[in-house]
Design a protein around this nucleic acid. Structure first.
Length: 260
DNA sequence: ATGCCCGAGAACCTCGGA
């Protein structure tokens, strides 16, 4: 099966890109972030015509996450457990595997944080701490777990186009990388890095300046697999092709494939 | 250079993104 994560930076603007990508790549699960729309505007019918069920939680202007699936999800949760938050950044559900087992899929849009001395960074840390707690529970209850999303953290300098320029900055700071390592220490593995030990590929490029043209990117969109799912992983990649389209999202899909 | 570009929403500018 194929699982992908894509921050679309407005689903209203990108709905054709997403539809085309679904038709070409036929993922079993496509997790979206930054819908930037209320639930009433979600283009459920567009995806239904392509054979996809939709689970989503949106809001006006900002944030918003969705899971498109070729089989309906059950036990959908749209709030990060034990965290009061109007920002729509978390959605999870159970996906039925062919074997009869269940996969718990969790899709997150981690707060950006803006700068290490910002109030928004306080929020990022608090949000992430709750995610870590939630994932410990999720993993203890579901051996087959995959956590995907826009983490707004580069796991290491390999994931940064210019580590010197970004050193200590938001998305690349030691404190954020320790947060991510602590989360992963509960039993989650960077699936892309498992298959690409020293590959330097990015999933986001700034719209500004040379941006994509100069490959000035970061790898911040991740597919994290539980141990049981990593054992069944067969490939992981980043598909740059949507970033080359006209009026693209600044992110492009991160993908993992599993033998189940 | 707290800049560059983009999207949303409300007005032709501000906020947030990363």
């Amino acid at each position: 099966m194929k699982i992908a994560s894509w921050n679309v930076n407005s689903l209203r603007v990108r709905v054709e890109h997403v539809s085309d990508w679904l038709e070409t790549n036929k993922p079993d699960l496509l997790c979206l972030q930054e819908l930037k729309m209320v639930d009433a505007d979600f283009p459920e019918d567009v995806f239904k015509q392509l054979g996809y069920h939709s689970a989503y939680t949106g809001q006006k202007t900002y944030n918003g996450v969705a899971i498109l699936s070729n089989k309906p999800l059950t036990n959908v949760v749209t709030d990060l457990p034990n965290f009061e938050d109007p920002m729509r950044r978390y959605i999870a559900g159970d996906y039925p595997l062919d074997s009869g087992e269940t996969l718990r899929i969790v899709n997150v849009y981690v707060p950006n944080g803006q700068a290490l001395d910002s109030d928004k960074f306080v929020y990022k840390r608090a949000w992430f701490a709750k995610l870590q707690n939630a994932m410990q529970d999720t993993l203890s209850q579901n051996p087959n777990t995959v956590l995907v999303g826009d983490f707004n953290i580069t796991p290491s300098d390999l994931d940064v186009h210019d580590p010197k320029k970004w050193a200590g900055s938001i998305h690349c700071s030691d404190i954020e990388r320790l947060m991510l390592q602590k989360l992963m220490a509960s039993g989650l593995y960077d699936t892309y890095r498992n298959f690409n030990k020293d590959g330097e590929q990015f999933s986001w490029w700034d719209y500004r300046g040379a941006g994509y043209r100069a490959n000035e990117g970061l790898r911040i969109d991740l597919v994290l697999s539980s141990s049981a799912m990593l054992d069944r992983a067969t490939a992981s990649s980043i598909d740059e092709s949507p970033r080359k389209l006209e009026r693209p999202s600044d992110h492009t899909p991160a993908i993992a494939e599993f033998d189940c």
